[in-house]
Simulated scan of single mutants.
Amino acid sequence: MPGPLLRPLPILFLTRPEAASARFAEQCGDSGLRFDTVISPLFRIEATGPLPDASAAGGLIFTSANGVAVWLAQGGRRDLPVYTVGDATARAAEAAGMRAHSAGGAADDLIDWLIAHTPDLPLMHLHGRHTRGDVAERLTKAGLTCGSAVIYDQPAQPLSAEARAALLGTTPVIVPVFSPRTGELLAQERAQAPLLVAAMSEAVVNALGPLHKRDLKVAARPESEAMREVVSDLLKRALAGDY
């Protein structure tokens, strides 16, 4: 008699820049769950030119680790205090010797914290061309001195042939989506595979719009660890055939 059919391993489909995707895949693998990995970044990070003059700034705001990386690569100052939305961005700044405070949440949490503590120093929000939250504008309206500058762009790039094949196949695909920018780009892709999507936030859910998906779960907190928890749950379901 023929043996039982072997179910193919689920695919962990990662669309962040290569280094961040590889790191997340490795962390997910630490759980002991088995899966295949497809990495195909939907955008790349490009510095937009010389850094803005930060001589008058008393503190820097970063809402992405990409901003920290570009700031440091371009020779930005490391002696200023840093305020970040999430822990991963704070860790990136601290690894370079900068003093960082993380709001441990979303842009709203950082804005609320800064308003409550009212730093007596001018701030500058350094971000990508595609950003949300109106951080500098909202802080300025609240009475704080805060400027804003674009220091990098996130131009879109096409999915690889392997990634497109995964989206059009029959194997379950687990898709962590970390930003509205990624959600918007992913929503433009044709998909017919059973997609199990992990969204970083409600803003990401809104950006995904009409994307074909079998299931969608939002992380309990907008941070990498919470995303891994959701991805692990979705991987377990896929491995059990519960999709």
Rank of each mutant, 00 (worst) to 15 (best):
residue 2 P to M: 08
residue 9 L to C: 11
residue 9 L to F: 04
residue 10 P to A: 13
residue 10 P to Y: 05
residue 13 F to V: 02
residue 14 L to Q: 13
residue 19 A to D: 10
residue 21 S to A: 15
residue 23 R to F: 06
residue 26 E to D: 10
residue 28 C to Q: 11
residue 33 L to T: 08
residue 33 L to F: 01
residue 33 L to C: 09
residue 35 F to S: 09
residue 39 I to Y: 03
residue 41 P to D: 02
residue 41 P to N: 04
residue 42 L to I: 13
residue 43 F to H: 06
residue 49 G to Y: 02
residue 49 G to E: 06
residue 55 S to E: 10
residue 63 T to L: 08
residue 64 S to L: 14
residue 64 S to Q: 10
residue 65 A to Q: 04
residue 66 N to S: 06
residue 72 L to A: 08
residue 72 L to P: 00
residue 75 G to Q: 08
residue 79 D to N: 14
residue 83 Y to I: 07
residue 83 Y to T: 00
residue 85 V to P: 00
residue 87 D to H: 05
residue 89 T to K: 03
residue 93 A to F: 06
residue 100 A to K: 02
residue 102 S to N: 07
residue 114 L to C: 13
residue 114 L to V: 02
residue 115 I to C: 04
residue 115 I to K: 06
residue 115 I to Y: 07
residue 117 H to N: 14
residue 118 T to D: 15
residue 122 P to W: 09
residue 123 L to W: 00
residue 124 M to Y: 07
residue 128 G to L: 07
residue 128 G to F: 04
residue 129 R to E: 12
residue 134 D to F: 03
residue 134 D to A: 11
residue 138 R to N: 02
residue 139 L to T: 03
residue 140 T to D: 10
residue 144 L to C: 13
residue 147 G to R: 14
residue 151 I to W: 01
residue 153 D to N: 14
residue 157 Q to I: 11
residue 163 A to H: 03
residue 165 A to S: 15
residue 175 V to F: 01
residue 183 G to R: 04
residue 184 E to T: 09
residue 185 L to T: 04
residue 190 R to M: 15
residue 192 Q to N: 15
residue 197 V to E: 10
residue 217 K to T: 04
residue 218 V to P: 10
residue 222 P to C: 11
residue 226 A to Q: 08
residue 227 M to G: 08
residue 229 E to Q: 12
residue 235 L to A: 05
residue 239 L to K: 07
residue 241 G to A: 10
